[in-house]
Design a binder for these strands. Structure first.
Lengths: 205, 205
DNA sequence: CCACTTAAAGACAGGGTTGACTGTTTGTTC
DNA sequence: GAACAAACAGTCAACCCTGTCTTTAAGTGG
């Protein structure tokens, strides 16, 4: 027999790849896109350069995989936050808080780096664009569900879209100047406006 | 004589620097931050590497100067747009259109690249942060003026801030997926909501 | 007209990055 | 257990990027 194996190769592979992907994301967050070299990633992951190139033959392959990894992280983060959403009058504000947490966390930061880099890198764009679209839709759907809006009504739909764009904008602003107080004030205001306008547009909570 | 000079040195210097700065911005827009090498910039500007390093001794100096150049471009762009703002009921929508044009143009794109790069580059951050803050304030002031809001009223102030953050978010979204129709719909909706809420907050037009 | 300063050109070294390549170990399959 | 394939390790060459240095040209002021 082939005997029971001590350490299955599939397992080793998975672990190796995961370490590399996580190191890639860390580098992205700490050093930015141009500061993320394959050498640095392999060092940080504690993986030899040879092993790295075995699993990801090029930087493009590594980063593309990292993009998907980030996407799944984002999905998980989102689902988790959505699960523990309180009911009551403060629900709208809580949903906005969730969005704000999302766009001020490391996963969004990594995504932002990839996003900006992809703008001028066709290869990367091919990998990032569809994923971003998918994530965008999922975020929209989740938000609609949490807010209890009717997505077939243009008014409500566009208000949700505006909310998501606002969140993105706040996230971007945060990367360079982290003014939490300002962010909170804007979100407080937005929550009121949103409830107000959604009610007017005929939301049925 | 002292004689009248054929080509004054001051003029030559100005022209040289301007060519380099514009080439830098072009590179930033077309190639992104990591694709912007000093060599490429000098080639693109039609300036020898020696001359480039004479005017800007380091990449940091070049980019810092480019940041200021971008800032002044942004300021000019803004002032120009603000000057030709129509009166009447569509004024709010026109202001939003101006903001949208601003965040979808090349100058914003270049600024975005610098912004993201500065996040992980202390030297660059020192140059970018104050300028960005200045530009942010100017944009806010201009918007307040154009919308005719009372900036001492928290509600109106926060609505303006939200509007600017929304614009930033739309600009960011545009860099990767340019969905003009969606943008227009969101802005149409937001114009209505904004007028509505500003009226409620007591704006006196 | 001559000393002086600034502008411009281009070669060069040092450092870093990527991916190809060779060799070694470890699991898998017959 | 022997052949085979996959995983892993590390070196190396080619390349690019930055910034220093030397050299040449051009404008300026006495």
């Amino acid at each position: 027999m082939t005997t029971a194996s001590r350490t299955p190769q599939a397992e080793r592979t998975r672990a190796m790849r995961l370490r590399l992907l996580e190191a890639t994301v860390e580098c992205l967050v700490e050093r930015g896109w141009s500061g993320t070299s394959t050498t640095l990633v392999s060092q940080r992951a504690g993986v030899s350069r040879g092993a790295q190139l075995h699993h990801f033959p090029s930087k493009g392959a590594l980063v593309t995989a990292a993009v998907e990894h980030v996407a799944s992280l984002r999905g998980a983060e989102l689902a988790e936050a959505a699960a523990s959403m309180p009911d009551g009058p403060d629900r709208t504000r809580a949903v906005l808080a969730m969005l704000a947490d999302h766009v001020t966390g490391p996963v969004f930061t990594a995504a932002l780096e990839l996003w900006v880099a992809a703008r001028t890198d066709p290869t990367l764009l091919d990998a990032v664009a569809p994923l971003e679209q998918r994530m965008g839709r999922q975020l929209h759907r989740t938000t609609v569900e949490l807010l209890g809006t009717d997505d077939t009504d243009p008014a409500q739909r566009e208000l949700v879209q505006a909310t998501l764009d606002l969140a993105r904008g706040l996230g971007l602003a945060t990367t360079i100047t982290d003014d939490r107080a300002r962010r909170e004030r804007v979100l407080d205001r937005w929550a009121r406006v949103l409830d107000d306008e959604l009610a007017r547009a005929g939301r049925t909570p």
